[in-house]
Design a protein around this nucleic acid. Structure first.
Length: 700
DNA sequence: TCCCCTCGAGTTCA
DNA sequence: CTCGAGGGGA
């Protein structure tokens, strides 16, 4: 943790700079906390910022007179928008970036539906508006609620503000369904954006970086009178809950929206195949600057809603739609330095420190360089002028170096061969089989490397692991530096040691009585933790959330895992085979588990940790569906769905889909033309059913 | 043996 | 979110 310079030693200029920086930071946290209800820092960190800020103002009274953002927001009522749960989630779209990928998408859809290449299949293509998604709920034609997208499952109630948007009807025309949730994009036009920023500048208010931010900022006003003064627009293109569907196609639905008096985008086209879709994409690309509002690509959707339903979703994105994005916006800037970060596993990751530059409406000052080879491949050197882009979405990357602008004598970047944190050798492991070097260079310091130790502690406390509130990255770094927490077990003895100590935590900068008490309470609350979280928290190489769950499910309790893993040190041991036989766990993962428990230091750390924490049995997996936990095999021709579709569906219901029949199989779904698997099932005593029976079983 | 998909690990900025 | 690699099916 950075220790701030003492206030008395600051020059007036430095004080002003820090005051401004802190003010902005506090304001941002206030917004996150009050309006988004999603704190970005712990209370302790916030308190520390606030204290430092107040101390600065006390020491430099001049600063206090300037209107500071921190005061404005901090003083604002702790009012916020109510939460709205989306009954039908507002999901995101997959992206494609070139014509070949558009063709792949069409191909994928056909394959999934089992459609031959010559069967007609229509898609809609429409501009992807760069605004913010919004869900409008109409009941009996009346606008009753409007909500932002939020995280897709829960948004914020912005009804009052949406009512001020002239284009959005308060009452639908014609015979709309009794319940109709219309979804679309709220956006601001280029002209309105320019005028708004001009007005903001005149009145000394803050300027918006781009129309999307301006639209978002306008919609999220707590005072809807302000929103009313902002020119917002809307395009309807999707829906959530609908009591009875007015159409059975995507374009039919949008036409219905238009009939009800909702604005819809005039550039939506019906396409038959990839060639049509790409033509729409190119036409919109050409007209992009003339549309008058920002678009960042084109969205393609399968037109037939029945087909959409069959295609369903992969994780959080529909299989029946994609966004075809325009090439990312680029900017050039100077690479000031290359910083090497050390991760939990010792991986050295280079990060480019850039001269701040605006790309696509946000200021970028860091970009990942991924690894040593990447730097070499692009021949990136400190001092280079580089082209930066925000690919498809958010994460900035360095596209290339502009060699003509390289400073004379700039040396090739030499990737360090020692760990910057502990000085141990950093090596690239050689794969035994292929003889190839690993892409990542790793610090060999392992247990002595402070950077790795800190990262392991952060991982241990992180949200999907122990999830200890109030013990964020900053606090962990602080406790580690003070020597108070070296290994996970130390976290749980922190309070006892603090009681016995003369230098109390609550007296340190950044902590206080309240936040210290909260921290201790949060730690106490985690003395028992689900087994899968516990295993994940250990930070065993190759054991992420999923593998931790697999281990937890297989072994049931930690002692069993530990005993087997200890016995698994030898590659050909029975114990190793047991781990290896867990579905989804192979040789490499099994070896990683064995290695972890073979390390005496880890055993020691575990012994101490287990004195403090009790792993509890894992939460049972959902058993709502009649096939949850069952292993299913599909064979023969399926008539109502393709193999892939059947598989996806069964997995959604908690079943495991295997490829061949064994005694572990619970159900064999056999269509016409089933062969050897039927015989095998009979032999193994596996229950056999038809596709119809299967569908009835899962309630389809 | 190859290919596809899933999982792990690392990272950005608001 | 992306990249690379592990796992397992074809």
């Amino acid at each position: 943790m950075r220790t701030p310079a003492s206030i008395e030693s600051l020059s007036a200029d430095d004080a002003r700079a820090e005051h401004a920086r802190l003010g902005a930071e506090i304001a941002a946290h206030d917004i996150a906390y009050h309006q988004n209800d999603a704190p970005t820092v712990s209370d302790a960190e916030y308190d520390a910022l606030r204290r430092r800020f107040d101390a600065l103002e006390k020491a430099f009274p001049d600063l206090a007179r300037a209107a500071s953002p921190a005061r404005q927001v901090g003083a604002a009522p702790a009012q916020k928008f109510a939460k709205v749960r989306h009954v039908v989630p507002m999901l995101s779209l997959g992206n494609v970036f070139d014509e070949a990928e558009v063709e792949d998408f069409v191909e994928r859809v056909r394959r999934f539906l089992g459609m031959p290449a010559d069967a007609p299949l229509a898609f809609t293509a429409e501009p992807k508006i760069d605004g913010l998604s919004c869900s409008l709920r109409y009941e009996h034609g009346e606008l009753v609620q409007a909500a932002t997208r939020g995280d897709g499952f829960e948004g914020e109630d912005v009804t009052a503000n949406v009512r001020t948007v002239g284009e959005i009807p308060h009452k639908l025309r014609g015979h709309a369904p009794a319940v109709l949730e219309v979804r679309g994009e709220i956006y601001m036009t280029h002209a309105d954006f320019a005028a708004l920023n001009e007005r903001q500048a005149r009145e000394g208010d803050k300027l918006f970086a781009n129309p999307r931010n301006a639209a978002a900022g306008s919609l999220r006003q707590l005072d809807s009178a302000i929103t009313a003064g902002r020119p917002l627009h809307f395009f309807a293109y999707a829906w959530g809950e609908v009591s009875n569907m007015p159409a059975d196609t995507q374009h039919g639905m949008v036409e219905a929206f238009a009939k009800y008096g909702l604005p819809t985008n005039p550039r939506m086209k019906l396409c038959h195949g990839a060639r049509d879709m790409i033509a729409v994409f190119n036409a919109l690309g050409d007209d992009r600057a003339r549309l008058g509002y920002d678009i960042d690509g084109v969205v393609y959707k399968v037109d037939d809603l029945a087909l959409q339903a069959r295609l369903g979703f992969v994780s959080r994105a529909p299989r029946w739609a994609v966004a075809h994005k325009f090439p990312a916006e680029q900017a050039t800037t100077v690479l000031r330095d290359i910083e090497i970060q050390v991760g939990r596993t010792g991986a050295l990751t280079p990060v480019a420190k850039l001269e701040p530059v605006t790309v696509g409406g946000v200021v970028v000052s860091n970009a990942t360089l991924h690894n040593e080879d990447e730097i070499a491949r692009k021949d990136i050197r400190v001092g280079d002028t580089v082209v930066v882009q925000r690919a498809g979405d958010v994460i900035p990357q360095i596209v290339r170096v502009i060699e003509e602008r390289r400073p004379a004598h700039a040396p090739k970047y030499a990737f360090p061969h020692v760990c910057p944190a502990c000085g141990s050798a950093a090596i690239r492991e050689i794969d035994e089989k292929t003889g190839e070097a690993d892409v990542v260079r790793r610090c060999t310091g392992g247990l002595v490397c402070p950077a790795q130790a800190v990262e392991r502690l952060k991982h241990f406390c992180s949200r999907n692991a122990l999830d200890i509130e109030g013990l964020g990255d900053k606090q962990i770094e602080f406790f580690y530096e003070k020597g108070l927490v070296k290994t996970p077990a130390d976290i749980f003895t922190l309070e006892a040691r603090d009681k016995a100590s003369l230098t109390k935590i609550e007296n340190y900068d950044g902590f206080g009585k309240v936040s210290t008490r909260n921290l201790f309470a949060a730690i106490e609350a985690r003395r028992s933790v689900e087994l899968n979280r516990f295993i994940f928290a250990l930070g065993i190489r190759r054991i992420g959330e999923t593998n931790a769950r697999r281990l937890a499910r297989h072994f049931g309790d930690f002692a069993a895992l530990r005993a087997t893993a200890r016995a698994a040190a030898a590659p050909d041991s029975e114990a190793r085979a047991e781990i290896n036989n867990i579905g989804g766990v192979g040789d490499v993962v099994a070896e990683a588990v064995a290695d972890f428990f073979a390390e005496p230091h880890n055993e020691e750390v575990l012994d101490r940790l287990l004195e403090q924490v009790t792993p509890t049995p894992m939460e049972a997996i959902a058993t709502d569906s009649p096939v949850a936990g069952k292993t299913v095999v599909f064979t023969g021709a399926l008539e109502r769905m393709t193999r892939e579709e059947a598989k996806a569906r069964a997995e959604r219901l908690g079943a495991k889909v295997a490829g061949s029949v064994s005694k572990k199989t619970d159900i064999l779904v056999a269509g016409p033309g089933a062969g050897s698997k039927l015989a095998k099932a009979a032999e193994a005593g596996v229950r056999v059913m038809t596709e119809e029976e299967w569908l009835a079983l899962i309630g389809a």
